[in-house]
């Protein structure tokens, strides 16, 4: 159910613009449901996924 994609931001400019990537790393979850700049500790990632999936 979970897919993680490393996106090279300069190579895929359109996508970077779509999600307003201004600093890296940026983690974008489910088409912009969350955009987090910087490292994301496991716990925070879990909380974000919980919030997004409403679980």
């Amino acid at each position: 159910m979970v897919q993680a994609e490393m996106v090279e931001a300069t190579e895929f400019q359109e996508l970077s613009n779509k999600y307003n990537v201004s600093g890296v790393p940026q983690t974008t979850i489910n088409d912009g449901a969350a955009n987090i700049t910087g490292a994301v500790p496991e716990n925070n990632m879990l909380e974000e996924i919980k919030r997004i999936t409403g679980k």
């Binding site: 897919q3 993680a4 996508l15 999936t53």
Partner: peptide, 10 residues
């Protein structure tokens, strides 16, 4: 439901 994590990097 599927969760897609996209990590933008340079």
């Amino acid at each position: 439901e599927p969760v897609l994590l996209q990590v933008f990097v340079t």
